[in-house]
C-alpha cells in the first residue's frame, strides 16, 4: 500500500496468483470489460508468448472514494508457468491482497496445490506472513467437464478460513464477486493495520459501497 497523505491518495496492490493457464489474465480482461470506463485505465500486458504471461498483466483502476480520498487500485497477474518463479516473486512484492485462481479441472488438482505452496513460499521469501495476507480463492473454469464438484467445494469451503468463489472467467461469471470479495478483505485488513477510518474519516462499509458504485458494480456481490 502506498499512502500519500497530503494528496489524500491511496494506492492498493492486488495480485492474481495461480497455476499456469488457470485464467488469471482472463480474470483481468473480464474486469476490464465490466468496469466503468471512467474508472479504468488501459489493460497493460507485459510480454506474452503464445498467450502465456511472461512478466505480468496490469489493470489500473482509480476513483474518488468520497471524503476527498483518491483511490488507485493496481491489479496484477503473475506468470503461472513454473519456470517464471523469480518473476512471480517480484510481482508478489508489496501485495496488499491476493486472489488465488485455481483451475477446477480434476486433473489440475496437484498443479493447484503446487502453485499454492509456491505462493506461500514466495510470500515468506518476500518477508510476509502468508496467514496474514488477505486472500480469496477462486475455482475457475466451472464450465468444463471433469471438474471438482460444487458439493465437494461447498463442503470444504465451510471449513476454509478464506472465502471461496466459483467462476467462469471467459464469460465474466463470478469475476466481479471474487474481486469485490478480495477488496472487502483487503480494506478491512488495511483499516486494521493503518487505521484508515480515522485518517480519512471513512467508515469501512461506506468505503466498500463507494468502491462498488464508482466501479459500476453496484448490484453485484452485495451478499
Amino acid at each position: 500500500m502506498q499512502l500519500d497523505f497530503t494528496a489524500r491518495e491511496l494506492t492498493v496492490k492486488l495480485v492474481y496468483y495461480g497455476p499456469a493457464l488457470s485464467g488469471k489474465t482472463t480474470n483481468l480482461q473480464a474486469i476490464h470489460k465490466l468496469v466503468h470506463a471512467d474508472a479504468s485505465g488501459r489493460l497493460m500486458t507485459l510480454e506474452t508468448r503464445d498467450d502465456r504471461t511472461l512478466f505480468f498483466d496490469l489493470l489500473p483502476l482509480s476513483f474518488q472514494a468520497g471524503a476527498g480520498l483518491s483511490v488507485r487500485l493496481k491489479l496484477f497477474t503473475v506468470p503461472g508457468q513454473v519456470i517464471h518463479d523469480a518473476t512471480r516473486r517480484l510481482v508478489l512484492q508489496g501485495a496488499d491482497g491476493v486472489v488465488f485462481v485455481a483451475d477446477s479441472q480434476r486433473a489440475e488438482t496437484r498443479a493447484n496445490q503446487r502453485a499454492f505452496l509456491n505462493m506461500k513460499e514466495n510470500l515468506r521469501e518476500n518477508g510476509m506472513q502468508p496467514e496474514r495476507v488477505p486472500l480469496v480463492i477462486q475455482f475457475n473454469k466451472r464450465d468444463l467437464p471433469d471438474i471438482r464438484t460444487d458439493d465437494e467445494i461447498d463442503a470444504l469451503s465451510q471449513k476454509s478460513p478464506e472465502p471461496v468463489y466459483k467462476a467462469i472467467a471467459t464469460r465474466g461469471t463470478g469475476v466481479v464477486e471474487t474481486f469485490l470479495g478480495l477488496m472487502d478483505r483487503t480494506w478491512l485488513h488495511l483499516e486494521k493495520e493503518h487505521g484508515l477510518e480515522q485518517k480519512f474519516d471513512l467508515e469501512p462499509s461506506r468505503f466498500l459501497k463507494e468502491v462498488r458504485h464508482r466501479l459500476g458494480f453496484t448490484r453485484r456481490g452485495e451478499s
Binding site: 488465488f100 485455481a102 488438482t109 496437484r110 493447484n112 496445490q113 499454492f116 506461500k120 502468508p130 496467514e131 486472500l135 480463492i137 475455482f139 471438482r148 467445494i153 470444504l156 469451503s157 471449513k159 476454509s160 478460513p161 478464506e162 471461496v164
Partner: peptide, 14 residues
C-alpha cells in the same frame, strides 16, 4: 487440516 490456510485446495485427494 480444517481451518488451515488454503485447505479447499490442499484437502484435495491425491
Amino acid at each position: 487440516e480444517d481451518g488451515e490456510m488454503g485447505m479447499v485446495l490442499m484437502a484435495a485427494a491425491r
